[in-house]
Design a protein around this nucleic acid. Structure first.
Lengths: 186, 186
DNA sequence: GAGTATATGGTACGACTGTTTCAATAACGA
DNA sequence: TCGTTATTGAAACAGTCGTACCATATACTC
C-alpha cells in the first residue's frame, strides 16, 4: 500500500552527481549549485542521501567503482616485456580522459591528510591497487609476496602524475617513465 | 610626521599565520579562527594583507621560503654514492618533522588542479627543485642538461611520500626507496 | 472514493564567510 | 597642544552554507 518507492531515482542522481564532482572537484562542492546542475533540489539530495557527508561518501565510492571497472577493462594481457606493460599503464592513466579521475584522486588524498577521520579506508584505497599491479609485474618481483615492487611502480606512476598534472610537461614525464622502465628491465 | 608605520607587525603576523596554516591546513582556513589563534583580529589581517587571498599567497610564499632554507641547510655534501645521498634525502623529507610541510605541499597541489588561476607559478614550484637535485645526482645523469633523472628521482620521492602519508607504512616505503636506489646505482 | 506511504516544493533557521564602514585611539613632529 | 598618520575595535553587511520544518502533491491498495 502507499506510493511505491523509486530507488532508481537515487541511483540516477548518484551517477550524475559523480559526473559533477569529477568535473568540478570536491573542495568547493555545495548542495545548491549541485542540485541546480542536476535538475533537482537540495531538499531531494538530503532526502536521498541523508546528509552531505553521506552524499560525498556515496559519490567517492561510485567514482572508485568506475575507476576499478575501467582499469580492469584496460589492463593489458601479460604479454610483452615489463617495460611495455608499464608504458601501457602510464599511457592510459596519464591520458587526458583520465584527468578528472586523477584530479579527484589527489583531492581526496589531500583532504584525507587534514581530516583522516572522514576517510577511514584511506590506506586501503592506496594499497588495493597492489593486487592488480602486483600480478601484472610478477616477473620483476622478488617473490609472490613482494610488496616492494608494486609499491615502487605505483610511486613512480603517482609521482609522475603529480608532476604531469602540475606542469603539463608530457614529454619530460614520458621520458622519465621510459627511464624507469629501462631500469626495471635490467 | 604622524605615527610611524610598524612593518614588523606584518612580519610577525605572517610568521605566526604560516605556523598556523602548517598546523591546520589550507582548506578550511578562515579569518576569524585564524585571528583568534594569533591574538589579533580579522580587521587587522585585512589591514595588513589586503584580502584573504593575498594573505594566503604571502603564507605560501613564506612556507616555501622556509622549506628552501631548511633543504639548503640539510643537503648532504656530494660525498658517498648516489644511493646513500638518495637515502639521506628520503630520510629527511619523510621524517615526522616534515609532515606539516608535506601535507601543505599536497594540499596546494590539489587545490591548484581545481583552481589553476590562483597559482600562476604552480609549475615552477615543482621544477625549481631540479636545480638543487640535479646537482646532487649529476653523476647518474646522462649529461649536464639532463632533466629526466631529476624528474624520475623527484617522482619516486613524491610518489612514496604520497603512499607514506596515506598509509603510514614506513617500512614498506623505505624498502621501495632502497630498491629504487639500487636500480639507480647500476 | 478513502487511506497511506513516498516524493517534492517552499521557506526559514542559525551559523558561518570575507569584507566594509565608522569611530576611536595611539604615536609621532612641530 | 595641535595636526597628521598609523593602528585598532565594534558592528554590520550581504552572502553562502547545511539542514529542518511544514505543507502539498503523487501514486499506489483497498
Amino acid at each position: 500500500m502507499g506510493r511505491p518507492a523509486d530507488p532508481a531515482r537515487r541511483e540516477r542522481t548518484l551517477a550524475r552527481a559523480t559526473d559533477y564532482v569529477l568535473a568540478h572537484g570536491l573542495a568547493g562542492l555545495s548542495l545548491r549549485p549541485l542540485a541546480a546542475a542536476l535538475d533537482t533540489s537540495p531538499r531531494m539530495l538530503l532526502y536521498d542521501f541523508g546528509s552531505k557527508q553521506e552524499l560525498v561518501a556515496a559519490v567517492l565510492a561510485e567514482a572508485r567503482r568506475r575507476g576499478a571497472v575501467r582499469l580492469a577493462e584496460h589492463l593489458p594481457p601479460k604479454t610483452g616485456s615489463a617495460q611495455e606493460r608499464l608504458r601501457g599503464i602510464w599511457a592510459w592513466i596519464g591520458a587526458d580522459e583520465r584527468a578528472p579521475f586523477v584530479r579527484l584522486f589527489f583531492e581526496v588524498h589531500a583532504d584525507g591528510l587534514v581530516h583522516p577521520e572522514t576517510y577511514p579506508d584511506q590506506g586501503e584505497a592506496i594499497t588495493d591497487w597492489f593486487d592488480t599491479l602486483g600480478a601484472t609485474f610478477r616477473d620483476v618481483s622478488t617473490g609472490p609476496d613482494d610488496t616492494v615492487t608494486p609499491t615502487l611502480v605505483m610511486a613512480v606512476v603517482r609521482g609522475l602524475l603529480f608532476d604531469l598534472t602540475a606542469t603539463g610537461d608530457r614529454q619530460r614525464t614520458d621520458r622519465a617513465l621510459d627511464r624507469f622502465a629501462e631500469l626495471l628491465n635490467q
